[in-house]
Amino acid sequence: MAESSPVRAPAVVRHFARIVDLVFAALTVVFFVAIALATGVRSPWSAAIPLALFLGVLLLVRRRWPMTVLLLSIAAIFAYHLVSWSPPGWIWPASAAYFTAAATSRVRWVAVIGVAQLLYSAIDARWVIDRNMPHYLTHTLGEGLLLAALLGMGLAYAASVRWRNRPGGLEASTS
Rank of each mutant, 00 (worst) to 15 (best):
L37C: 08
I19K: 03
P44R: 01
S121F: 10
V33R: 00
A122C: 02
Y136S: 08
A25P: 09
S173W: 15
L53K: 00
T104L: 05
A122N: 03
D130G: 15
R63Y: 07
L53Q: 04
R62V: 14
G142S: 02
H15K: 12
R164Y: 04
S5M: 15
P167H: 09
Y136N: 07
M67I: 12
G56K: 02
H15S: 15
G152T: 07
Y80M: 04
S4Q: 13
S86C: 09
S121V: 08
L58D: 01
Y157E: 05
F32S: 00
S105R: 14
A9T: 13
H135D: 13
E3S: 14
V7T: 15
Y98P: 06
V61R: 10
I35C: 00
S43N: 14
A25K: 03
L22C: 12
A94G: 07
T39E: 00
S121I: 06
G56C: 06
A48C: 02
A75T: 09
S4R: 12
L146V: 15
R131E: 15
W109Q: 13
V41A: 06
A96H: 06
R14Q: 15
R108D: 11
H135G: 10
W45F: 05
P87G: 00
P50H: 02
A111Y: 08
E171G: 14
V13Y: 13
S175L: 12
L147P: 10
V33F: 03
L118E: 07
G56H: 02
L51Y: 04
L59C: 07
E3F: 09
A17Y: 09
T138F: 13
L145H: 11
V83E: 06
L55G: 02
A148E: 07
L27G: 03
F31A: 07
R18W: 04
A102L: 11
V161R: 08
S84C: 07
M1Y: 10
I35T: 03
